[in-house]
Amino acid sequence: MDLNSDVGESFGSWTMGDDESIMRVVSSANVACGFHAGDPVVARATCAAAAQEGVTVGAHVSYRDLAGFGRRFMDVSPAELTNDVIYQIGALQAMAAAAGTTVRYVKPHGALYNTIAKHEQQARAVVEAIRTVDESLPILVLPGSVIQREAEAAGLRAVVEAFADRAYNADGSLVSRRLEGSVIHDPEAVAARVVQMATDSTVETLDGQTIGVDAESVCVHGDTPGAVAIATAVRAALEDAGVPVTSFL
């Protein structure tokens, strides 16, 4: 199982997450590209840390929404969204090269991630951006989503992702962060969920149902309080269950 985390989300003198520590635990790093968080200094340093630890680097692209941390829907045209995603991937590719590594995949962030699970035009815009830059780049997706369908139809590899510390609705979507219980903070509870995902391909929903989730990668959010402890518990639990932690590439 691949274990990924959102990193590189500090900005100037403002710090978010403990990237140095979490990089020792995960196998893939979703590096912010500057539109929802991050800046050139942070991006290069984060890519360098990933290279040092042998962690795969991915471009964590988003809406242009620094003030809202990329968690607000933006009604942008498909052409604008395509160019925004191209720009972000290209910027991180340059920083990764400067740090001695490469961008190996794409993961949309926040509101963009959730929107393209259902929004056909925006999903196609993101697919077009990736195909334009490098059609060999996989994209992380929710299972059964519009973006998964559009990516696969265009010949891209869609890597199904699950979320360690986020609650699920019965339809397989993520519970809104506005609702109580949307984020799970107990490391042991999160670790048990991930082992269930990896060994049984199922997860418990917020209302107590069991749904299928056949994922190649599991995300632990780097901005979740206690993220390093959560990621460490998840990795230990997976390895104890006989599931090696390794990049999906």
Rank of each mutant, 00 (worst) to 15 (best):
M1Y: 05
M1G: 01
N4E: 07
G8F: 05
S10K: 14
G12L: 14
G12D: 12
M16Q: 11
M16S: 14
D18M: 05
D19E: 13
D19W: 03
I22T: 02
R24L: 10
S27D: 02
F35E: 13
F35T: 02
F35M: 11
A37N: 08
D39T: 11
D39K: 13
A43L: 14
R44D: 00
T46R: 12
C47P: 02
A48W: 00
A51I: 04
G58P: 01
F69K: 06
G70F: 04
A79T: 09
L81S: 08
T82K: 11
N83E: 14
D84M: 11
I89M: 09
A91N: 07
A91E: 02
A96I: 00
A98M: 10
A99G: 12
A99F: 02
T101Y: 00
V103P: 00
V103I: 06
R104S: 15
Y105E: 04
K107I: 08
P108Q: 09
G110E: 13
G110Q: 13
Y113D: 07
N114C: 13
A117L: 09
V127W: 12
E128G: 15
A129N: 05
A129L: 07
I130K: 01
T132K: 11
V133R: 00
L137N: 03
I139G: 02
I139D: 03
L140H: 10
P143F: 10
S145G: 14
I147G: 07
I147D: 13
A151Y: 07
A153N: 14
A154Q: 04
L156W: 00
A158N: 05
A158E: 03
A158T: 13
A158Y: 04
V159S: 11
E161A: 07
A162C: 15
A167G: 02
N169T: 11
V175K: 12
V175L: 15
G181W: 10
S182T: 01
I184Q: 06
I184L: 15
D186K: 03
A192D: 06
R193C: 04
R193N: 11
D200A: 15
D200R: 15
E204C: 04
E204H: 10
E204I: 14
L206K: 08
A215P: 06
A215G: 12
S217P: 00
V218D: 03
G222D: 03
T224M: 01
P225W: 11
A227P: 00
I230R: 02
A231R: 06
A231K: 08
R235F: 06
A236G: 05
V243K: 04
S247Q: 01
F248S: 12
F248I: 07
